[in-house]
Design a protein around this nucleic acid. Structure first.
Lengths: 219, 219
DNA sequence: AAATGTTATTTGCAAAAAACAAATAAGTCT
DNA sequence: AGACTTATTTGTTTTTTGCAAATAACATTT
């Protein structure tokens, strides 16, 4: 029952977001093989029949290969396809995007981390892919706890506020933000834990179990 | 530079939504070949290297084959993959969903149109696919002009109101709905055009160019 | 022609949410 | 102790929403 048609190449690519120095960034990989050998591109690879249960497993494998561990948040973005997008021929690329706290990436060669508004020219259709990934991230940020996955497990209200502003790319009122977030039950106070610094200490929060389970189900 | 790995089967499936008798429905197709020959399933097929520029073109081809014309609204939903989802083996299915006004479908064998909450058992992983498609449609309905594509080009405010209620599956206040919709500039009055009936005539509207272009860009 | 029935559309008001501006709180540092 | 800085709360205004009722417009009946 095999199809009589030639089949396209099937690959996965990944858009790995992080926030470094208050700016939304992407992690790129230098290509080790042709085509476009030596250029920076989105980390990706073919789907392996043997190792990958599905494309999401393939994406996880690619991400582990790039950063050494699993991304706290991973979601399928879109599938790009066509005869022209890859010089090797007709191909289908299932693209995933992931959010990774910069704190987990310290020590990574920062040469491969670029602000999304200052990326080098990208090969294939990776420019379009990035545009779509940023659009999706911005869209979801406004009505979900998604941006919190760019922070480490403990964070202050101000950290969260800043992260939302950076991913959305707009100013948000402090008092309203606080009120809205607390009303959604997506974060919870860590009792008696504060971030202490030069001035008034800030309450530490963590994602609530509600937020965590909601996102395992990929709301 | 061909990959050394075996490649999965690549296909497209479609979730074709319409509203008939005030209920959100899906159009199914009776399978003409094994596996699951004779059962109702989502319309789909393999991607043809010769005919299809990309998976979206393949989806359009499948849809034309099923209903005879192009759907007013078509969007990629998600890509499902795995070794177990199709008995023919490892496969990747790029799924699209479409919105089709029932008025364009009159005469279609209604035996193949089922309310989404009363579908027959579906083969493959089509049950999951439907669940995801309904979820996406409902999600987008609340903040976009999407449901309007289930209506024909001219509609009254009440038509629109009813369609939103049916896709979202909840009651919406008449006055608030009207106010909100008009504030978004997604529809515009058709000057001096009314739907006349037994009682007070209703203003006819159409989608604004803003809404149309927004959705060509797949917001 | 006037009254009636029915659907369409507008209006008014109370409640809730959001935006804006400022005050208060809680530490460190001098 | 007082200045300084960041965190958090409070109050006020503006905007949106929810709900209920009034008004408008026509066809049909009286």
């Amino acid at each position: 029952m095999e199809p009589v048609y030639p089949q396209p190449l099937v690959m996965v690519d990944t858009a790995l977001f992080t926030i470094r120095d208050e700016r939304l960034c992407l992690i790129l990989a230098r290509r080790k093989e042709p085509p476009f050998e030596g250029l920076l591109a989105l980390p990706g690879g073919f789907v392996h029949a043997q190792e990958d249960a599905d494309t999401e497993a393939a994406a996880r494998r690619v991400i582990r290969g790039k950063i050494g561990f699993d991304a706290p948040y991973l979601e399928q973005l879109f599938t790009f396809s066509g005869a022209a997008r890859d010089p090797r021929g007709w191909s289908v690329s299932v693209v995933y995007y992931a959010l990774i706290p910069w704190s987990l990436l310290e020590g990574n060669p920062s040469a491969e981390v670029f602000p999304v508004d200052a990326l080098p020219p990208l090969p294939f259709d990776h420019g379009q892919i990035v545009a779509k990934a940023v659009e999706r991230l911005r869209g979801k940020a406004t009505y979900s706890s998604l941006p919190a996955f760019l922070l480490s497990a403990e964070f202050t209200m101000n950290d969260l506020h800043r992260i939302y502003e950076q991913t959305i790319g707009a100013r948000l009122d402090k008092a309203s933000f606080r009120h809205k977030i607390l009303g959604q039950d997506i974060i919870e106070e860590m009792p008696n834990r504060f971030r202490t610094g030069a001035h008034r200490p800030a309450q530490l929060y963590r994602l609530s179990s509600k937020a965590l389970t909601a996102f395992e189900r990929k709301i």
